[in-house]
Amino acid sequence: MKQNNSTALSVNLNKIALLRNSRPGNFPNVVAHGETCIKAGADGLTVHPRPDQRHIRPHDVYELSELVRSYPAIEFNIEGNPYAESMGDFPGFIKLVQDVRPHQCTLVPDSNDQLTSDHGFDLKIAGEKLRPLIQQLRDIGVRVSLFMDPDIEQISLAKEIGADRIELYTGPFAEHFKSQSDFFKKLFARYHGAAAHAQAIGIGLNAGHDLNLDNLGHFRQVPSLLEVSIGHALTVDAIAMGLVPAVQAYKKLCIE
C-alpha cells in the first residue's frame, strides 16, 4: 500500500459547475477547468452528480470521462448516492457509473435533497444492501470506496462487504481544527486510529470534506492516506489566488 510520503489530489469540480449553472450557456466551462487542474498538477478529478443537477450534470460526467482518457495517469472519481434513481434527464447514479466506468466510484449515504454530504454509512444497517452493488461495480473494473466516519468497527464492515477503499468524512475534523482543544486532539486521535486500522486490515484510505490549505497538512499525519478529494475550499482559494496557483498550493501539501 502507498505510504504517506505522497497523497493524490483529486479536484472536485462541483462548484465550477454550480457557477456555470447560475447563467445560461457554458461559462465557466467545466471540462476546460478540469483540464487546467490536470495541467496544474492534480492527480484526478472528482464529480458528485445529483438528481436535481444543481451542479454537475450528466453531460459533464460523460465529457470529463473523455477528457481523462487523454491523460492516462489521471483518475476519474464519481461519488454519490448509489440509490439515486433517474429523474428527468438524470439517468440514475449507477447508470452513469456503468456508462463511464470511472477509475473509482465513491458511494455516499446522501438523500436527494441533502445540501452536502455530512455523515458516513452505518454498515450495520446498509451493509448487506450495498454488498451486491459493490460487487457489481467491481465486476466492471471500478474501484469502490465508501464514505465513512472514523469508526473502527464500521471500517471493518466496509472491508467485509467488499469495498476497496474508504473515504473518511473529515467535516468534524475541519470544524474543530482551529480550536486545537483537548476535544480536537481526541477527535484527531480517532481519525489517526481509524486510518491505522484501515492500513492494518488492508483497505485503502481516502479522505475529504472541508479540507483546506490550513488543515490539510495536519490531516496528512494519518498513516497511508492515498487520496484527498477537495473542491469547495480549493474553488474559494482560486478566486483569490487563481486556479493554477490554488491547485499547485494543494498539491504541494499533498507531496511534502
Results as ranks from 00 to 15, higher is better:
Ala207Asn: 03
Phe173Trp: 06
Ala246Gly: 08
Ile140Trp: 05
Ala40Phe: 02
Tyr62Phe: 13
Ile125Pro: 00
Arg54Cys: 00
Pro24Ala: 13
Leu168Gly: 01
Glu63Leu: 12
Leu205Asn: 03
Pro51Ser: 11
Asn14Leu: 08
Ile255His: 14
Arg54Leu: 01
Ile140Tyr: 03
Glu79Asp: 00
Phe219Ser: 08
Gly127Gln: 12
Lys159Cys: 06
Asp237Ile: 06
Phe93Asp: 02
Phe184Tyr: 15
Ala40Asp: 02
Pro82Arg: 02
Asp210Ala: 11
Phe177Met: 06
Lys95Arg: 15
Asn14Ile: 06
Ala158Pro: 11
Gly120Ile: 05
Val228Gln: 03
Glu227Gln: 15
Asp214Phe: 07
Glu85Cys: 05
Gln154Trp: 06
Ser181Ile: 07
Val144Ser: 09
Gln180Pro: 09
Ala163Phe: 10
Pro82Phe: 01
His218Arg: 14
Arg20Thr: 10
Glu128Gln: 15
Asp214Leu: 14
Ser86Tyr: 01
Ala158Cys: 11
Leu64Pro: 05
Ile74Lys: 13
Leu234Arg: 09
Val244Cys: 13
Phe121Cys: 08
Pro28Thr: 07
Arg69Ala: 13
Gly208Tyr: 04
His218Gln: 13
Lys159Ala: 12
Gln180Ala: 15
Phe93Tyr: 14
Thr7Ala: 05
Arg20Asn: 11
Lys185Ser: 11
Glu167Asp: 05
Phe93Asn: 04
Ala240Pro: 00
Asp113Ile: 10
Thr7Asn: 10
Lys252Tyr: 07
Ile239Asp: 09
Glu79Gln: 12
Ser145Glu: 10
Asn12Gln: 04
Asn112His: 14
Ile166Gln: 10
Asp149Ala: 03
Arg69Gln: 14
Asn212Asp: 15
Asp151Met: 00
Ile255Ala: 08
Met241Glu: 15
Ile74Leu: 10
Ala84Phe: 12
Ile56Glu: 09
Asn21Ser: 12
Gln136Asp: 15
Ala196Asp: 15
Leu19Cys: 10
Arg165Met: 13
Asn81Glu: 03
Phe76Lys: 01
Lys159Met: 04
Tyr62Ser: 10
Ala126Pro: 02
Leu234Cys: 05
His55Ile: 01
Leu64Glu: 02
Leu157Cys: 13
Asp237Thr: 07
Ala207Ser: 12
Pro28Asn: 05
Leu115His: 12
Gln154Phe: 06
Asp210Lys: 09
Arg20Glu: 06
Phe147Glu: 07
Glu160Val: 12
Asn26Glu: 14
Arg190Met: 11
Ile78Gln: 01
Phe27Ala: 13
Leu225Gln: 03
Val68Glu: 01
Gly92Trp: 03
Ser65Asn: 09
Leu146Val: 04
Glu66Thr: 11
Arg138Met: 02
Asp151Cys: 10
Met241Arg: 15
Phe27Asn: 13
His59Phe: 07
Pro82Thr: 04
Gly162Pro: 00
Val97Lys: 01
Asn215His: 02
Val144Glu: 08
Leu64Gly: 06
Ile74Ala: 03
Ala126Asp: 14
Lys95Ser: 15
Leu211Gln: 09
Thr46Cys: 10
Ala40Val: 01
Asn26Gly: 02
Leu216Asn: 04
